[in-house]
Design a protein around this nucleic acid. Structure first.
Length: 490
RNA sequence: GCCGCCAUCGUCUAGUGGCUAGGACAUAAGGUUCUCAUCCUUAAAACCGGGGUUCAAUUCCCCGUGGCGGUACCA
């Protein structure tokens, strides 16, 4: 066994990448990189029934989007391939024969019907539903005869009948299991394809895996795995079982109850930085009190023993917050590109070509940057920049206890004041200075002017400031919109 | 049923044999402000229960309870 650090992420290509899978991959990556090791990808497609065409490529793509890349894998090669289990069939057969020769495993001819019935009976009698080991003591001759006769069979692991086994998890320490509680589980299915339990052990050994990182749901099969390494006479790698991620109600994260696919989060406009930061915080925490960090920052500080052991609830409140933080960190050019897909509908609303330029979109995006929780909200937030004719109730123009009459008068004088402002002074800062100075000199309440102005420009109760809106929209459109507001109040 | 893992504010977590049990998100109040958001300040909010061990347990041990996982020719 080599003492090199080699970790694997070994998903089944059953569709989309689950948020729990992303977290496993992330911890794999963090551990591998913090130890200066290698991370490789292995596709575990031993269950043809559940396999989905193209899923492996999608997995690689979305992981790369999230910032997790591999040093070896089916897409880039490496010295330990093939990295797809369905292409390793001959390897598994070879090792199966080895175990058969050693007497560590045995063929089992029991039918699935018999096994299900047996389990149902055991359950009815409140007994553990275990395989009754009918075929365990079949003579070699008889087994050979039945195989020759074409009978279907599986290969089972011949476990010790009693005794204790102590296995080690890097996070939880030594764990004691009673071997009598274990089953003679299936290693090779009747179609000759190995189960996960067999394939992963063989591959982890052959691919010189140093640390197996997987979800806590695998903890109960750890003693079986260790026993299989023993049957082979191999040293076992280190095992790290990550605590589970639960949904809001403490149940299993499932597609029915909301988004669990990483690509759904991407489509909604979550940034990979936020998703990574949030996922890392589920079970790990940096030393200081700062919780905003990049994947590179995390690598610097990461230690296996700092991973938690209690399950975490996937509560997206904090993810929303983190996403806002990372959106606010983006530059305007970056944000324009990120928002573009979500802006297409809005761009179609206007006939003004200037509004389709990056110059204008840049202004819009910079005004919305601080109020976005995710990118997809940009369309909803920014309609008011693109709509030519705003529709709103005229009462929206009236500030607090003011009246429509007074509002009309205020807007008229505001119109005259703005009309005199030169193009060079038509900028957020200068507009704010001149308008507020003007209001002060008139002894006017700012709300009686700025609220109607903003409402006239946006048609909304909530929006960026009237000066920011005025700057983005330009003098002509601003005067036009105020004029329309005055019309409404007549 | 059996086996296993886990247990600090609503959530993610820090932490210790003796502390006013810390932070972040969310919530509430206030400030800034024409609105929303951002930002700032403040508040409320937790050691599952019972036994031990100990001068002293949230911390160590046991039991219970609860949550979750496993108990497939799925991974």
């Amino acid at each position: 066994m080599s003492d090199k650090i080699r970790l694997r992420f070994a998903p089944s290509p059953t569709g989309f990448l689950h948020i729990g899978g992303l977290r496993t991959a992330l911890f794999d990556y963090l551990i591998a990189k913090s130890l200066g090791g290698v991370l490789f990808l292995r596709i575990e497609d031993t269950d043809q029934k559940r396999e989905v065409e193209g899923a492996a490529d999608k997995l690689i793509e979305i992981l790369a989007w999230a910032g997790i890349t591999f040093d070896e894998g089916p897409h880039i090669g490496g010295n330990f391939g093939p990295y797809i289990q369905s292409q390793r069939q001959d390897i598994y057969q070879k090792y199966n024969k080895e175990l058969l020769a050693k007497g560590e495993v045995y063929p089992c001819f029991c039918t699935e019907e018999r096994l299900t019935q047996m389990r149902a009976e055991a359950e009815a009698m409140k007994k553990p539903p275990r395989y009754d080991r009918t075929c365990r003591d079949l003579s070699a001759d008889e087994a050979a005869k039945r195989i020759a006769a074409g009978e279907k069979y599986v290969i089972r692991h011949k476990l010790p009948l009693a005794g204790e086994i102590i296995v080690h998890d890097e996070l939880r320490g030594d764990l004691k299991f009673n071997i009598a509680d274990l089953d003679d589980y299936v290693l090779i299915k009747s179609d000759g394809v190995p189960t996960y339990q067999f394939a992963s052990v063989v591959d982890d050994h052959l691919m010189e895996t140093s640390h197996v990182v997987r979800g806590e749901e695998w903890l109960p099969s750890l003693p079986k795995n260790i026993l299989l390494y023993k049957s082979f006479g191999w040293d076992a790698p280190k095992f790290i079982h990550l605590p589970l991620v639960l949904d809001k109600n403490g149940g299993k994260l499932s597609k029915r109850k909301g988004d669990v696919a990483v690509e759904d989060f991407r489509a909604k406009g979550f940034l990979p930085e936020a998703l990574i930061n949030f996922n890392a915080l589920l079970g790990w925490h940096p030393a200081g009190e700062n919780e905003i960090f990049s994947i590179t920052d995390a690598i610097k500080e990461f230690k296996i023993e700092d991973i938690g052991t209690s399950p975490a609830i996937f509560n997206t409140d904090k993810l929303d917050y983190l996403n806002g933080v990372y959106i606010r960190k983006k530059s305007i050019p970056e944000l324009i590109e990120l928002c573009r897909p979500y802006l297409a509908e809005n761009l179609a609303l206007t006939s003004n070509d200037f509004k389709k330029t990056d110059e204008f979109i840049g202004k819009v995006v910079s005004l919305e940057r601080e109020r976005l929780k995710n990118l997809s909200e940009i369309g909803e937030h920014t309609k008011l920049f693109f709509v030519d004719n705003l529709e709103y109730d005229k009462n929206l123009l009236v500030w607090k206890k003011s009246t429509p009459e007074a509002t009309k008068v205020n807007l008229e004088s505001l119109f005259d004041f703005l009309d005199k402002i030169g193009d060079n002074d038509w900028q957020t800062k200068k507009l704010e200075e001149s308008v507020t100075a003007w209001l002060k000199s008139n002894n006017s309440s700012v709300g009686d002017y700025l609220w109607p102005m903003r409402a006239a420009l946006t048609g909304e109760k909530a929006s960026p400031s009237p000066f920011e809106m005025a700057d983005a929209l330009g003098k002509a459109e601003v005067l036009d919109k105020i004029k329309k507001a005055i019309e409404k109040l007549k």
